Amino acid sequence: DEVEIEDFQYDEDSETYFYPCPCGDNFSITKEDLENGEDVATCPSCSLIIKVIYD
Rank of each mutant, 00 (worst) to 15 (best):
F8A: 01
D7Q: 14
K51Y: 08
C43Y: 00
F27C: 09
D11H: 03
E35N: 13
P22L: 09
Y54F: 11
T16D: 07
D7P: 00
C21Y: 00
F18Y: 14
I49F: 14
I5K: 02
K51C: 06
L48I: 04
G24D: 14
C23R: 12
E4N: 09
Y10Q: 06
C23P: 00
D1L: 15
N36M: 10
D1M: 10
S14L: 13
I50M: 11
C43P: 00
Y54P: 09
Y10D: 01
T42G: 12
Q9F: 08
D55Y: 11
E35V: 06
C43K: 00
Y54W: 08
K51M: 10
T42K: 13
G37L: 05
K31N: 07
K51V: 05
S14T: 12
P44Q: 13
V40A: 05
V52N: 05
N26Y: 04
D1F: 12
F18S: 09
E38I: 05
N26C: 11
S47T: 12
S45C: 07
V3Y: 09
A41C: 13
E4G: 10
I50S: 10
L34V: 12
V52G: 06
F27A: 07
N36Q: 15
S28F: 12
F27V: 10
K51G: 07
P44D: 01
P20M: 03
I29S: 05
K51E: 06
P44R: 13
E6Q: 04
C21V: 00
Y17V: 01
D33P: 05
A41E: 03
I29Y: 08
D11N: 11
C43D: 00
N36F: 03
S45L: 03
S47N: 12
C23W: 02
T16H: 13
G37S: 13
L34K: 12
I29N: 06
E2C: 13
C43I: 00
L48P: 04
L34M: 12
V3E: 01
D25G: 13
Q9P: 01
S45M: 02
P22S: 12
S47E: 06
D7Y: 10
A41W: 01
G24H: 15
D25V: 06
E6M: 03
C46H: 07
I50A: 07
S28E: 14
D1T: 05
Y54N: 12
V40E: 04
A41D: 01
P22D: 12
D39P: 13
D11T: 07
F8M: 02
C46A: 00
D11L: 14
S14M: 10
L48Q: 11
V40N: 02
E6L: 07
P44M: 12
S47P: 08
E2F: 15
C43M: 00
V52A: 09
I29E: 03
D13T: 08
D25K: 07
E32H: 15
